[in-house]
Simulated assay, not measured.
Amino acid sequence: MFPDLNAPSTSYYCERTSPDFWAEPLNATSSLLVVLVAVVEFILLWRRGLLSPSVIVLMVLAASIGVGSFLLHTYATVWAEIVDVVPIWSFVVVYGLLALRRFAPDSFNLPFASLFSLCVMGTGIALASGDLLRATPLAITAGFSGSAQYFPASLMSVSVFWFIWKARHPSLLKLGLGVGLFGLALVFRSVDMRLCETIPTGTHFMWHITNCVVFWYLIEAYASHKLPPVGSASAPRVAMPGA
């Protein structure tokens, strides 16, 4: 049977104490910051002549994440949860493939990278929908405020970063900051329900704010460095300790 799309969302947040539209003012408004970041970065990159079709796709996906998150934290229904989840995993997969192609072309293998990305996306969506959460020990899922769905994204982020580190690409610092801040954002998301009694608003809104910086660094790093010319051996290298 298909799920009732108008049923209440399976996701729970500390700030929501009623089914009202504005029951999560901090979570809802902070969601839209991603849209603002995408618009501002679009303007800045356009002025620098760094826009490309792939950069625009990443920005549209980032803005879609903000819109989807806003709908989830206001309507709080199953359909809003789907609208929230799909852009997130689309961004993870698309950015992972584009970043490997641009920053580590020597390590890029399209069939393998595509298969790995689809597995990560499928696992993430399944976890988000609750299909796998029921098979996961409750102590793991409940203790992380539903953040278990992002563990596959963490795995992909670390994997992509490792390949780029091997290529010693100049964007390594910005990408490293993006990956590190994503880890911090996950902490804010994971402790949301645990800190309800101490922080009535919860910490989920900090997940949104921190991820705004993550998107900025990731898209800036991708847009700032062009794809190596056809026939070049590899991406530009920078000196690293022990290299």
Rank of each mutant, 00 (worst) to 15 (best):
P8T: 03
S9I: 09
S11F: 13
S18A: 13
W22Y: 12
A28S: 14
L33D: 04
V37S: 05
A38P: 03
S52K: 12
V57F: 08
A62L: 06
S64P: 06
V67G: 05
F70N: 03
L71W: 08
H73N: 08
H73K: 02
T74Q: 03
T74V: 02
A80H: 05
V92N: 00
V93I: 14
D106I: 12
L110G: 06
A113G: 03
S114A: 15
L118D: 07
C119I: 15
G122W: 07
G124W: 01
S129Y: 12
L132A: 06
A139E: 13
S145M: 07
G146F: 03
S147R: 09
Q149Y: 06
Q149L: 14
P152M: 02
L155D: 01
M156C: 04
V160P: 02
V160D: 04
F161C: 07
F163P: 02
K166G: 00
R168K: 15
L177S: 08
L184D: 01
A185H: 01
F188G: 02
V191K: 04
D192A: 00
I199E: 00
I199A: 00
G202T: 00
H204K: 00
H204N: 00
H208F: 02
V213A: 15
A221E: 09
Y222T: 09
S224H: 08
H225A: 09
K226E: 10
P229L: 10
V230Y: 09
S232D: 12
S234G: 14
P236H: 09
P236R: 10
V238H: 03
A239C: 09
